[in-house]
């Protein structure tokens, strides 16, 4: 068996346009999940009636089932249900024309929200209730207390698991291929299929994902260092 370097180089060039799509899925999901995940965590911590159990169920649903199953359900069942609904409601949208990327963004945002809500929930519990009470007695509103006091302290505990979640998300984004989105994994699979160069193709995917993951970790390390600057860790 020989390693086809020519194919490797050719595929590497072909795959480049797929990288922004992968990064889009990651960035979009994070942009949605950071605020939504935080709000979910707060709502659950406050035990809002009806809302908290509903959110807890949704989080379990997203975190307790394999991503690949969710993908098949969302990608196959959701359009069918939607089109039936649209037909009944008389809305003239053909759901089968919808770009599968939208389904992918929807599912990954939802899934990441569930993951991050758990990250934030445990991070919130590291900030004592007294911090919120002290802020209230100082006259701050609850929202001000969260923004100025609780969240900055929470981030100390959240930053490492957040980075983990981002890396996990990046890796899982390769699954969008199963939704018919041609991300970098999709491109590699097609390229490899032409000349049966699967080994080279997957090796290439390995290298690219590794580089991207290093990139994500690097970004987090940078942010963490900036946050830590001049700030000693809390003793108790």
């Amino acid at each position: 068996m020989s390693f086809d370097l020519d194919f490797f180089a050719r595929a590497a060039r072909a795959v480049l346009p797929g990288i922004p799509l992968t990064l889009l899925v990651v960035a979009f999901s994070l942009a949605v999940a950071l605020p939504l995940g935080f709000l979910t965590a707060v709502a659950r911590a406050k035990r809002v009636r009806a809302l908290s159990p509903a959110l807890a169920f949704l989080v379990s649903l997203m975190r307790g089932t394999p991503m690949i199953v969710q993908i098949y359900v969302i990608y196959n069942a959701l359009p069918l249900m939607l089109s039936a609904f649209f037909r009944k409601a008389g809305i003239g949208v053909n759901v089968f024309d919808v770009d599968p990327l939208l389904y992918a963004l929807f599912l990954f945002s939802l899934n990441t929200t569930a993951t991050l809500s758990e990250v934030f929930r445990s991070a919130l519990s590291t900030v004592g209730a007294g911090q919120m009470e002290a802020a209230l007695t100082c006259g701050l509103s609850e929202a001000q207390a969260y923004v100025r006091i609780v969240v900055p302290q929470m981030m100390r505990a959240a930053s490492a698991p957040l980075c983990n979640a981002a890396v996990e998300l990046l890796k899982n984004s390769s699954l969008v291929f199963y939704m018919g989105v041609r991300d970098l994994m999709g491109i590699i699979k097609t390229e490899a299929g032409i000349g049966y160069n699967y080994f080279e193709g997957y090796a290439l995917a390995l290298v690219i994902y590794l580089i991207l993951c290093f990139g994500v970790q690097g970004i987090f390390r940078l942010v963490e260092r900036r946050a830590k600057r001049g700030r000693a860790a809390q003793a108790a």
């Binding site: 911090q131 002290a134 802020a135 006259g139 701050l140 509103s141 001000q144 100025r148 006091i149 302290q153």
Partner: peptide
């Protein structure tokens, strides 16, 4: 219950600036 992410002075001024 001092704000652990704020200095002594910031602890005192936080309520003055933000709330008042």
């Amino acid at each position: 219950n001092l704000f652990s992410n704020k200095t002594a002075l910031e602890n005192v001024t936080e309520g003055l600036i933000v709330a008042r």
